[in-house]
């Protein structure tokens, strides 16, 4: 059962569209603490991507100006380009601090939890690692 799930998972991973992969690679670079080599990106993205695929996506993101790179010996290390970072953060903070009417409009991935729900979720997480 687990085997099948893993295999399905990998097969699906291989079929992911290029546009979707760009978002995944970019997300992995943002999640990292510092610049990553292509090999590290591949590991961080997960899902059994081919090294060449990762390399292609990185070049494409670089050409679009969404990521930057520094030379580290013969390899490149990639990092996300933080455009108007402070402006975006301020805008977002303002957005999140709006009143209840405005909050209701936001379609959130995960909402805040009550104490009891948090305990329930932690228990579930422990039960199914």
């Amino acid at each position: 059962m687990a085997d099948r799930a893993t295999r399905d998972h990998t097969a699906r991973g291989a079929r992911r569209a290029a546009g979707e992969l760009e978002a995944e690679v970019l997300a992995a670079l943002w999640a990292a603490d510092g610049p990553l080599t292509a090999a590290h990106v591949r590991r961080a993205v997960g899902g059994g991507l081919a090294y060449n695929t990762v390399q292609t996506i990185l070049v494409r993101l670089y050409d679009k100006g969404l990521i930057g790179r520094v030379a580290d010996g013969r390899r490149h290390e990639y990092f996300p380009v933080k455009g108007a970072e402070e402006l975006a953060a301020e805008q977002m903070q303002a957005l999140l601090s709006r009143g209840r009417n405005r909050q209701a409009v936001l379609q959130r991935f995960a909402t805040s939890l009550s104490v009891e729900d948090a305990r329930l979720l932690r228990a579930m997480l422990r039960r199914r690692p």
Partner: peptide
Amino acid sequence: SCGNGELAVVALDAPH
């Protein structure tokens, strides 16, 4: 403010 790709990332610690 966060570029023009499909994914826009804001440098905030709160998870959203």
